[in-house]
Amino acid sequence: MSENKKTTIVLFSGDYDKAMAAYIIANGAAAYDHEVTIFHTFWGLNALRKDEHLSVNKGLLEKIFGKMMPRGVDKMGLSKMNYLGMGKKMIKNVMKKHNATSLPDLVDMAQEQDVKLIACTMTMDLLGLKKEELLDHIEYAGVAAYIGDSEDGNITLFI
């Protein structure tokens, strides 16, 4: 048993800006010595995708899903004012100008800080995502694992 406080975040959204908020909070909480868990479900799973194309054996519908969804955080669009990706490009320039850490770097930093990244296996099946397509050193679990981490937690968020 550890006496550290706990922060758990459900990342449901697959939008760049929302994922950025989730990962900033996760890194901040880790700096507070919290045990941090991010539970990725539905579109949030795309945050865990590797950016290279991998040929994995799956059905047609799953293949189409795979093509339509972003491969990793850097490919995500904005939740507002995306304008076919122009808004996203603009935000990335503005972020650079203001020295904001890029989203891929925030994900790397979260892993460095031992933030537990969990992929929801039920929604992986629905979206046809395979383990090979997701980042290394993550965990696979369902709702019970999330509740287990949250029930004696201090902060929990749904993004």
């Binding site: 900033i24 901040g28 880790a30 700096a31 507070y32 203001h98 020295n99 904001a100 850490t101 800080q113």
Partner: peptide, 13 residues
């Protein structure tokens, strides 16, 4: 300096 949230706190930790 010249880093934005959450870096100052992560670096300080």
């Amino acid at each position: 300096t010249n880093v934005a949230c959450p870096m100052p706190i992560v670096k300080t930790k």
